[in-house]
Amino acid sequence: MDEKYQDSLKKDAMDASEFSGEVEDVAAKQLFMTPGQIVARQFFRNRLAIVGLVILVIAILFCVVGPFLSPYSETEMFYLGADGQEVPKDVPNYSARISESGARLNKRAEPDSVHLLGTTELGHDMFTRLMYGGRVSLMVGFIVVFVELLLGVTLGGIAGYYGGWIDTIIMRLVEIFNSIPFIPLMLIISSVMINLKIPEGNKIYYTMVIMGVLYWAGVARLVRGQILSLREMEYMQAAEAGGIRGSRKIMRHLIPNVMPQIIVMATMDLGGVILTESTMSYLGIGTSAMFASWGNMVQAVTSDVIMRNAPYLWIPPGLAILFVVLAFNFVGDGLRDAFDPKMKR
């Protein structure tokens, strides 16, 4: 007794209900509903997917729009006056006040009404840093995944569709890329970039492209495998026998059928890349400390004292990573199910 049997039972069940007769008139109204509509309808029936989507929308708004609304900037530092009160920026004798004896950096301040999430080790506003950090983390995720998909889908698709010697070359390439140790290579690249004196602010862009180039191999292998198995399906031969143009075959049959796998892979990878970026920042080889990213914000935990006494320093970025990665996975799962007509019902 396997799933196939249960599947066929369900199918029979559907048939029987269809042939009961009265359905015809009601159903006739929804002639030619586009697959896109069906996907959307399916997606919005999935509660977890909606939760994920909402989290993502909030996160993106927070990171993209948030900084414009924030009164502080990313690298702005705050000082305490001699009286132990923070010196407001708009006082006339600001520079004098902060250079008084007894004045010091307002670091690791606890959350209050001025700094909603307190301040960091270097006296930056935590909440603002969190917004800017999210920008970097999300951007890294999207760009790396975009680069890896671009390379992976194209090369994997070519390998699978044309086969032969092209396939052999591309797959050997994939194997080479798969055997490169990632973290050591990034450490080397990081030191090379220091040697080349690449400006701190630009380093992250190079890193993103390099990550994308290193990650495409997995995507290519997946896409190739999918296309190879799809090519053998009889509906591809039916399309061929129907005289369907090659481009149409790719657009209408191949792409929609590899789409779910690509989407799931992409969303899972988005989460994964954000995590990797965090790891790299934590190790000090990604975003430079001057610019925030969620990863290097968690890096603030350098001792157990901080971990215990200043949880506001690492819990917010940690939670941000957790929620965004989770949300990507929820949305990915939701999309996969929505694309899969077997879930329609």
Binding site: M33, Y235, A239, R245, R252, H253, P256, N257
Partner: peptide, 21 residues
């Protein structure tokens, strides 16, 4: 089971080549 594209509706399956030609 394998001769129909699971991601196309019946109308699209039948109509695909009709439109093409």
């Amino acid at each position: 089971f394998s001769s129909l594209d699971p991601r196309m509706s019946v109308g699209a399956i039948i109509g695909e080549a009709v439109r093409e030609h």
